[in-house]
Design a protein around this nucleic acid. Structure first.
Length: 858
RNA sequence: GCCCGAGUGGCGGAAUGGUAGACGCGGUAGAUUCAAAAUCUACUGUCGAGAGACGUGCCGGUUCGAGUCCGGCCUCGGGUACCA
């Protein structure tokens, strides 16, 4: 009965992700398909996505990030590599302490619960992760090894203490993160934030400035933009460091040491300026006006952004400095809020004509503006500076013995003379500062040192590690609970055994994430790393994560790998830990507000004609599409998508459309389209397997489908290799269309569908397994080799060439692919459109790009 | 402020300096259906009746030919050293 058959086909063609996905996940688990085992006979491939902070819920950004890594991992595995693809948790940090304060839960309990929740959300995605290597950075087994390395680094003189400023909330009596300072005030107390000096721990990253800079050139598989950002961050500059003689300065400040990269402009100097944190500025604070000005400067936030965007202000100290080359020329000395103590010497000379900031300052305080570099196209006698400083190239003017020289020659001449006068020397400077790792917080890795009255600061004995965080702490009061936990604090000195006190600072969480990649190579070892494992698995072959980590996390990791090498925890070959880096974009969504201006989540609004309205039919304002965030409520929980459509649909959607490096827009329509396509592929597979048609082998149809199959292999492969997953997806759509329309015989279609399953496997692994099984594939498609492309199948016999006339497309001709240039020329000249355009005359020029285009210039 | 990106149809986006808009969404028409959903087929940058003209954020340049290269802007996003 036809009706019966019809119903049966319909039932068969339903693809039920809810049943199919767990089934294949169990199959992979029981076959331990993703367990990575060291095997020196096989070539390894290490794929790593930046591990997540356990906020409690995964979001679409995670889904996208981990799907990308999974596609690479599964693809490389199919290519025959021994793949390592681990997962862990960046588990220390501020949010756990905030939760402790708000919800009265212990930061550890909160964090481990979040990890459990997120793991439960990630597992259904079917990621090819070796979960046996999972760890959290807040596990004592992990941070204890980090403490051991800290001690080793102390032994190699890579760690030291010095004073540095923090944001201090005078009401809450606590240190604030930059993020917790809003408009110069503490986010909770609302008090004006002060800058306070504390003795803090530092890593000597700046000693590696030159190496970290040089080695960037070798990171050829990193995005150019990231290398440029790091280069600028390190900020190497060639300059001159020299002394001005001061007039009227307090005792001990007879000289003022400045650093400049523009020594050629010394004759254009009209003032000098120091930071409010400069020792001289502090020495002058006995003058209440200066003390007040310095205090005002220190009110400006500690961030570079706050300093640079603040209005430029100065205070004339009345002190003068003598120009080294111009007898009798005296320059005023200002304290200025835009001079940074952390860079150079904390003192500068200002040349307003050739520096915009100095010019603004000079205009404000009515200082002399003498141009000393003249644009070659201008007359030196009339060259003057308006509202913009002249930053271009040119000849030196108004500078006595430098007149007529180029900028470069003038710099050399000034440097030579200053050195000869014994006033200073040419010096290379770096913008990169040492890495302050002290945090006055509980939820971090304790710094494993002890303060002893007799012995000073001593490292803990390694056998006492890990120094674990005490469990019994309270967050009733602001500040660091470790400071007031006497039982934990009091200890015996590891050196003399007398009563002493533990350091209560914990480490910056960037330390935790600076070596986790190495720990994954042997996550349970009782040393930080194991030589054989790091030798085999390092480096990370492909690292994937957000571009927001382009500088800090990646630079710190590069430094830490060097430090680990010096302390014997990583081989020399691994000092650049990430061979290839890919930075992905964010996931965005529209924002919605009700008439009261309250943010609404996407499922609180329902579509009506021309827009959206609330559940109680009030109009909804649609805002811009921005990065998904809890505060704007524009979040789509991946759980819902996975529940509704299955993991494959979520994976397929985040891989399609947008190029991975760009931000992606989540739309419900797009998810639905992804689901429809997967259903369609499944139906197609089902139809093919059930078709009973007798083979009517039309040779051309067979050949066409085979060619399309190889074209698809080529497209999908180059898409994955080039991190253009959206193009791989487009190739698979195209291939599906071709296959659906094909009249080739069943055997050819089955072959094509098996290749389809192999190619879809990295993106939609569950559906791929199901299709593979239905098509009679052997074993798991997750373990099947990647299909090989036959280059002969990619060639076409004929090619369509566009004909341009004066660069504009006017016609096209179909010619054989291996046509000679002469023959083609003849065909072009005989073309009607060309003949009409030429109207009897000869073309000026005929440009033929073989296989591409013909351009007739008239 | 400074450093680094990005801007292409109604929408997401393709395009080794060589046919701008692949592929998908949406839309229109048709097939199927008692009807709908689902599915399938065709069309779909804008203007224009048409020939054709215009078109890749803006202004200028290089080139036989520019989304692509160069110079100058605008807007949006990321980072800015204690968010991770």
């Amino acid at each position: 009965m036809p009706g019966v058959k019809r119903i049966r086909v319909k039932l068969m063609s339903r693809y039920n992700a809810r049943v199919v996905e767990p089934k294949w996940q169990e199959a992979w688990d029981s076959a331990e398909v993703f367990k990575a085992t060291r095997d020196e006979t096989r070539e390894k491939y290490y794929v790593l996505e930046m591990f997540p902070y356990p906020s409690g819920r995964i979001h679409m950004g995670h889904v996208r990030n981990y799907t990308m890594g999974d596609v690479v991992a599964r693809y490389k595995s199919a290519k025959g590599f021994n793949v390592l693809h681990p997962m862990g948790w960046d588990a220390f940090g501020m949010p756990a302490e905030n939760a402790a304060m708000e919800k009265k839960v212990h930061p550890g309990d909160w964090t481990y619960q979040n990890i459990a929740d997120m793991r439960a959300q990630l597992k259904p995605m079917g990621l090819s992760i070796d979960w046996t290597r999972e760890f959290a950075t807040c596990d004592p087994e992990y941070y204890g090894q980090q403490q051991a390395m800290f001690i080793d680094m102390m032994g190699k003189d890579l760690v030291y203490r010095k004073n540095a400023v923090v944001n201090w909330d005078p009401v809450d009596m606590t240190v604030l993160a930059n993020e917790q300072v809003e408009g110069g005030r503490g986010w909770r107390s609302g008090a004006l934030v002060e800058r306070k000096e504390l003795t803090q721990w530092f890593f000597k990253i700046s000693e590696f400035s030159e190496d970290l800079l040089d080695a960037l050139d070798g990171l050829t598989e990193w995005p150019e933009k990231v290398r440029i950002m790091q280069k600028n961050w390190i900020g190497k500059s060639q300059g001159l460091q020299f002394n001005f003689k001061t007039l009227g300065a307090p005792k001990g400040f007879e000289e003022l040491e400045v650093y400049t990269t523009r020594s050629d402009t010394l004759f254009g100097a009209s003032f000098t300026a120091i930071s409010c944190d400069h020792p001289l500025a502090k020495a002058l604070e006995s003058d209440p006006k200066i003390a007040a000005f310095n205090a005002e400067c220190r009110q400006v936030g500690a961030t570079e952004e706050a300093l640079e965007t603040a209005e430029k202000k100065g205070y004339d100290t009345g002190i003068k400095v003598a120009h080294p080359f111009e007898a009798g020329c005296e320059l005023p000395l200002y304290i200025a809020n835009f001079v940074l103590m952390g860079y150079g010497t904390g003192a500068i000379f200002g040349c307003p004509a050739h520096d915009q900031r100095d010019l603004d300052f000079a205009r404000k305080y009515d200082l002399v503006i003498t141009p000393v570099v003249c644009d070659e196209a201008q007359d030196p006698d009339t060259f003057s500076i308006g509202s913009e400083a002249y930053l271009g190239d040119g000849r030196i003017i108004n500078s006595r013995f430098l007149d007529g020289l180029s900028i470069e020659d003038a710099k050399l001449e000034v440097n030579k003379r200053i050195e000869a006068m014994g006033l200073g020397e040419a010096k290379t400077n770096y913008r990169l500062r040492d890495w302050g790792v002290s945090r006055q917080r509980y939820w971090g890795c304790p710094i494993p040192v002890v303060h002893c009255e007799a012995c000073g600061v001593v490292p803990e004995k390694k056998e006492n590690l890990p120094i674990e965080l005490p469990k019994d702490v309270s967050f009733e009061r602001p500040g660091n609970p470790l400071d007031r936990h006497d039982e934990w604090r009091n200890c015996d000195c590891p050196s003399c055994g007398k009563p002493a006190q533990r350091e209560t600072d914990t480490m910056d969480t960037f330390v935790d994430s600076s070596w986790y990649y190495a720990r994954f190579t042997n996550a349970r070892a009782d040393t930080p790393t194991v030589a054989e494992d790091v030798a085999y698995w390092m480096n990370v072959d492909q690292y994937i994560g957000g571009v927001e980590h382009a500088i800090l996390h990646l630079l710190y990791s590069r430094f830490f790998a060097r430090a680990m090498n010096l302390t014997g925890h990583l081989p020399k070959e691994a000092i650049e830990p990430f061979n290839a880096l890919f930075t992905q974009g964010m996931v965005c969504h529209e924002t919605y507000k009700d008439p009261d201006g309250k943010w609404l989540t996407p499922d609180e609004v329902k579509p009506v004609s021309g827009g959206y309205e609330t559940a109680d039919a009030r109009p909804v304002t649609i805002g811009p599409s921005i990065k998904m965030s809890k505060s704007k409520k524009n979040v789509v929980d991946p759980d819902d998508i996975i529940d509704q459509y299955g993991a494959d649909t979520a994976r397929w959607f985040v891989m399609s459309d947008s190029p991975p490096e760009r931000d992606v827009e989540w739309t419900a329509a797009g998810a639905d389209a992804a689901w429809k396509h997967l259903q369609r592929v499944w139906r197609l597979a089902d139809e093919i397997s059930q078709s009973t048609e007798v083979d009517k082998a039309d040779a051309k149809q067979v050949k066409d489908l085979q060619k399309a199959t190889h074209r698809a292999i080529d497209d999908v492969t180059s898409g994955i290799e080039g991190f253009a997953f959206n193009k791989s997806v487009a190739g698979l759509y195209q291939f599906t269309n071709t296959l659906a329309k094909s009249n080739a015989d069943k055997a050819t279609k089955i072959e094509a569908m098996k290749v389809m399953a192999q190619m879809m496997q990295p993106m939609t692994p569950h559906l791929a397994e199901e299709i593979w099984a239905v098509m009679g594939g052997t074993g798991l498609v997750a373990q099947a080799p990647w299909p090989k492309v036959d280059p002969a199948m990619l060639k076409d016999d004929t090619v369509t060439l566009p004909i341009q006339i004066n660069g504009k497309r006017r016609d096209e001709i179909e010619v054989s692919a291996d046509i000679s240039k002469e023959e083609l020329e003849k065909l072009v000249m005989a073309n009607q459109t060309v003949e009409r355009a030429l109207d009897g005359s000869a073309p000026k020029k005929l440009i033929i790009v073989p296989g591409r285009i013909v351009n007739v210039v008239i």
